[in-house]
Amino acid sequence: MIGKRVMTILFGLLMVATPVTFSNVSASTSVTVILASDNEADCTIAEYLANVTGAVVVTTTWGVYDPNVTAEIMSYAPDEVIIIGGPDAVVEQYVSDLQELGITVERWGGQNRYETNLQVMEKAMEKFGLKFNESVIVPGNDSLAIKNALKVAVQNRAMVLYVNKTTNVTKLMERFQIREALAFGSPASKKLMERVKEQLRGCNCTASEVQLNVTKETVLQLMIQVRERVRTIKEIANETNCTQLMQQVRVMEMTMEKANQALQAGNYTYAYQLMLELQVRTQFGLKAANGEMRKMLGNSEKMALEREMIKLQAQVSVMERADINVTGINALMEQLRVAIQNGQYEQARGLMNQIKAMVREAYQKGKETIRSNPPAKSSKGRKH
């Protein structure tokens, strides 16, 4: 029997999408939604674009599919959705959901955060006509540095560039024809930033540096995200009886405990370094865990249909809140619920297709109405 919390993960009953609204959404303007994972690197790039273009940002847990995220996007009635990140970070199910609704979708993503970063910068220049005279250079795995770099990048309209130990900074600057750089780093990325400064001097670039201090609050903020990821992986591992996942969880928990001990001892930099490593490790864990979840769904037609039904219920709720008449859809939804409950799966699939067509039609006809009734800002949201 599947536990309550894993059922929640499977069917997306948790509202893990956090909308970040940077401009008022109205019926008279076009709307672009940027969908990114809660990976700090991708999410920050999304926020940066939102600040300079007026787009709306919606985030999803890295590697996790939640139908409520699709509903959140739908509630803004966007003309288009730009996905930042590859399919491991923002899963392909979102593309299918949005295309079913008739929403234009494009993905800006590479094999990793560094490739994604470069692709987003280039496509942003092409699509939005953005021009940059300087750059903000920041280690792509240093959450503290990334957060602080965002503020300066927005203020100066600077290009955001992520680097790691293999990055050729000289070629990067030449690629974008930029000669001014502000480098952000923390004690966790000290060696990397020394290498970056050396390369900047070599390419005759004007460069300055911002060194950030790791505080107890810095570590605690990162721990919140990582702890929840580990908990999710553990729940799925238990329910799927996946030995490999459980082994990964045990190692993660040991690292978490080591980081907590360092934190209590006042060694904030070491604790922060451990959490950065664990943050990356949880992403691999989530990918494996969601593979196990997909197997579970693939082996149960009932569970797959129930997940689709819950997705449609979330979408219908968006239209109901905008006072769009969905009486006919709700009648079919009740028939669908009964068919699934009675094991009439062929009938359920037929009803599902009818409902999807009706939802798409109602949504397309009611887009202006939905825009006139935008969702309330999340308490977690930030406005810049």
Rank of each mutant, 00 (worst) to 15 (best):
V95L: 05
E198Q: 15
C242V: 02
Q93E: 12
T61R: 13
T61C: 09
V138L: 10
Q247F: 08
E47C: 12
A55Y: 13
E92T: 11
V56Q: 14
D38K: 08
S30D: 06
P19C: 08
V230M: 04
R179T: 13
N299I: 06
T327E: 02
N267A: 10
V169H: 06
E239T: 13
P374F: 13
S28D: 12
Q119A: 01
Y76D: 02
K151A: 15
A50I: 02
R229H: 15
I137G: 14
K258S: 12
A27W: 00
N117A: 04
E115P: 01
T282Q: 06
G328H: 05
A207Y: 15
T61G: 08
M256Q: 13
C43E: 06
S30N: 11
Q354M: 06
Q221E: 15
Y162A: 00
Q199G: 07
W62C: 01
R371T: 14
E228K: 14
M309W: 03
M352T: 15
P139I: 04
L286Q: 13
M1C: 04
K302I: 14
Q354F: 03
A362R: 09
L192S: 05
L172R: 01
Q364M: 14
L161N: 08
L101H: 08
G366W: 02
V152T: 15
V90H: 03
A304Q: 09
I236W: 10
Q283A: 05
M246V: 09
K147I: 10
T167H: 03
L220E: 14
E368L: 14
T218W: 02
T240W: 01
P139F: 14
S186E: 05
N342K: 05
T240L: 00
N299A: 06
M309V: 01
S300E: 05
M15P: 08
W108P: 04
K191V: 07
M303P: 03
R382S: 00
S75D: 06
S75N: 05
V338Q: 09
V31Y: 15
Q199K: 13
R113V: 07
V33K: 08
T240P: 02
M254T: 12
V280I: 13
G54V: 12
G328C: 03
K311M: 10
K216T: 05
E126D: 07
N373L: 00
Q211E: 13
V226M: 01
S189H: 05
T21K: 10
P19N: 11
M352W: 07
R201T: 10
V16D: 13
R281E: 14
A265V: 04
A77F: 01
Y94I: 04
A288D: 11
L49K: 04
T44Y: 09
K302M: 13
T32A: 01
M352C: 14
E180S: 12
L161Y: 02
Y345C: 03
V136C: 11
E180D: 12
A46G: 15
T167N: 04
I370N: 03
K311T: 09
G291K: 04
D66R: 00
F176H: 11
N24A: 10
S28K: 06
Q347N: 11
A145S: 15
V52A: 02
Q315S: 09
V196L: 03
L14A: 06
Y65E: 00
R307H: 09
V280C: 01
T70D: 04
L351P: 02
Q199M: 11
P19H: 07
M333C: 11
N156T: 12
E122D: 14
